[in-house]
Structure formats: structure tokens, C-alpha cells
Design a protein around this nucleic acid. Structure first.
Length: 156
DNA sequence: GCCAACGTTGGC
DNA sequence: GCCAACGTTGGC
């Protein structure tokens, strides 16, 4: 895993929580429903073995709650094809898919989630996309040094 | 529940 | 190409 890279993915726990991921078959899920080009492009850049911080947005408090791993690289998001799905997008067809998803598998749930406020306290994390005012990007890269610091905050 | 920030859409 | 209107995100 020398070349593993690091990412952060947001999910509202009322929609899909890290506990839901733990309960999923093989503790694995498809990260469907992303409808933002920048986030999609980051998913397309993901490689098997890349590590992912799992973030609970719209939570109390919003927090990084654990770690997952990319187990399948980008492939077409089927939910975009289904008119009955809330993520349906007629722009995306089976012949020319617009939206992709990846599969991730749970690695670890933090005993103590790291709240957003705690992250803001860290001068070394000030460049994180997550902390940028107005940032809404749901899939974003994380620098190796940020990853290391966050893991140290989570404890071993 | 509020609302600022953001991305997308569509009229022109 | 501009930009107002709109819908969504997500912290508070």
C-alpha cells in the first residue's frame, strides 16, 4: 500500500451512516448518488487500496467517524438510469454514462469520532477542503500528512 | 428551521 | 457569454 492515496467522503448518517456500512454485506457499499462533476472526477481517480475518511455531515456534531477502503474502482452509477430513483439523471445513459461510483469497504470505526470543531483547532489541517468556508464537495482528496495527523487524533 | 455558499439551468 | 433564479448542501 506504499502508493495508497487518501480521500474523504461525506454522508448524512440519517441517509447512510458508518454503522450502516458495518451492517452491509461484506461491510461494503457502492457510493452511488454523487451528482457533482468535481466529486465524480475524484472518484474516477481512486484506486483500489486507497484509504477513505468517512465523514458524517448534518450530524450532531459533524465528525470524521472512521475509515474505509476503495475495493472497486469507478464504474457507472446505475441509479442515474432509473427514473424512479431520486438520483435519476436523464443525461446519463447506459450507452454514455455520466455518473460513476466506487465501492468502499469498512476498515475501522473510531472509538471517538473527531468532531469538526476539533479539526478546526489543528493548525496543520487548515488547508483541508473540508474546513474551507462554504465547501460542499462530498468527495475530496486528503494530504498524507493530514491523514497521519487525523489518525493520531483518533488514537490507535 | 434558518440561511450562506455553491452549482446548475435557462432566458436573453 | 452573462447572470438571475433556483435547488441543494450542510453548519449552526
Amino acid at each position: 500500500m506504499a502508493n495508497a492515496r487518501y480521500w474523504l467522503m461525506k454522508s448524512e448518517p440519517t441517509s447512510f451512516s458508518i454503522q450502516d456500512l458495518r451492517a452491509a454485506p461484506k461491510k461494503t457499499t457502492s457510493w452511488d448518488g454523487v451528482r457533482n462533476y468535481q466529486a465524480r472526477n475524484f472518484m474516477r481517480a481512486m484506486q483500489r487500496g486507497d484509504q477513505v475518511l468517512f465523514y458524517h455531515s448534518n450530524a450532531d456534531p459533524p465528525s470524521i467517524v472512521g475509515i474505509a477502503e476503495v475495493v472497486r474502482e469507478a464504474y457507472p452509477d446505475q441509479t442515474a438510469f432509473d427514473p424512479k430513483d431520486s438520483h435519476y439523471d436523464p443525461k446519463s445513459t447506459r450507452a454514455k454514462p455520466v455518473w460513476d461510483m466506487v465501492d468502499i469497504r469498512l476498515r475501522r470505526i473510531f472509538a471517538s469520532p473527531i468532531p469538526l470543531d476539533r479539526l478546526r483547532d489543528e493548525s496543520r489541517l487548515q488547508r483541508m477542503e473540508l474546513l474551507r468556508k462554504g465547501s460542499r464537495l462530498s468527495v475530496q482528496p486528503v494530504r498524507p500528512e493530514e491523514w497521519a495527523l487525523i489518525l493520531s487524533l483518533a488514537g490507535s
